[in-house]
Design a protein around this nucleic acid. Structure first.
Lengths: 201, 201
DNA sequence: GCATATTATAGAATATAATTCTAATCTAAA
DNA sequence: TTTAGATTAGAATTATATTCTATAATATGC
């Protein structure tokens, strides 16, 4: 028993428990409006524990964000492995995003709506490294098809917005409840549009 | 002189002064991290005044958001008036967004990054009405060209993401400093891609 | 196994920020 | 003028975030 009469509830999974509690709170109330206290309640942990692992709400949000993005990115690279031509690759970018959002809407909602996280310098650096590695890999994958003339030659920084922008925009719409049509029902339309936008004409 | 030795600085433009101060704070520090105190300092007003006009930070953000969206929307409808065919219309949607963001990057940054505002019910209702009116007008404008066969027939809720998603995605990139290439330099690419994605094939 | 270092938990104490509230002042209309 | 409503002021209060010290659990070296 601790000094103040409560047992110490240390568990190896405490970090994960806090992350899940936080995600549920963020999803119900929004990141800005959820309090440390709410997360603490739902995770059934102490304030000290929460600060020990994450250093505050900002830190919880950062960790959640980095985990989410990493999972999303890793999934895409895995699926690109099975593609053998430019059209398949482009369609996979769109369809994977739609699948992923459909499978974990709470996490997706968090990623999409939480653009206002004030990442700590280390988190910022980690995120930057993640992006660089990911986009590097994606560009490597697609590069040969541009060189080979299967895809239009465009300013490099425009490919991702052109291919992924529309499905991401629609996902935001769906996640916020402003449209009912599930992603699965329109994903093909976006895949088709993306391919039309970048295929060599 | 007031009870506590300070003159009352009432001005008719106080509301606007607060909005501008808030935007500057939001842009420098992020919405989540700016405090009422910071806004109060920059606007040189009292806490009472701020709460009187907006009811808190949330209210300031809501007003700013509604003003910004309204201006963006109004501008588009105005420019669509001068268009006489589908291609011009589609390109105008893209180019107007690029122009608008370039002209007021701070406000654009706020609109784009502040997806986490907890609008009060009235603000939410107002925003919904604004969106309905705007998208209603835009769909009316484009409808005839779809009927006439100049544009692809697609699920209605996919047109806007397909046309505007990419330029919005790129604008986010540019506004957050992750790309240097100005919108004006790539806007044509996006206009072209948008038209290719929706033109009748 | 036992001592010791490291990591994790707890929650009271403190610091910071949001919000409310009452009084004073301004403005415009009668 | 007078007066009602709108606006401003800032102290007081309330809510929330953060720090800090004491314990307890766990891992590590011997």
């Amino acid at each position: 028993m601790s000094r103040r009469g409560q047992p110490n509830l240390a568990t190896p999974g405490r970090r994960q428990v806090i992350l899940e509690a936080a995600l549920a709170c963020f999803d119900e109330t929004g990141v800005a409006a959820t309090t440390i206290e709410q997360i603490r309640d739902r995770a059934a942990c102490s304030i000290g524990s929460l600060y020990h692992h994450f250093g505050g709400k900002e830190g919880v949000a950062s960790a959640l964000f980095i985990d989410g993005i990493s999972d999303l990115n890793a999934g895409l690279l895995q699926r690109l492995d099975d593609c053998s031509n430019a059209e398949q690759g482009v369609r996979t970018c769109v369809l994977h995003y739609a699948d992923w959002v459909t499978r974990q809407p709470e996490l997706a909602r968090f990623l999409v709506h939480a653009r206002e996280i004030n990442f700590a310098p280390e988190a910022r650096a980690e995120l930057k490294a993640i992006y660089q590695r990911h986009f590097g890999a994606v560009f490597t994958w697609f590069g040969r098809f541009v060189l080979r003339g299967d895809m239009k030659q465009l300013p490099p920084e425009t490919y991702i917005p052109i291919i992924s922008g529309p499905i991401e925009d629609y996902a935001r719409l769906w996640l916020s409840g402003r449209t009912r049509t599930p992603l699965a029902e329109v994903a093909e339309v976006f895949a088709e549009a993306a391919w039309n936008a970048v295929r060599a004409s």
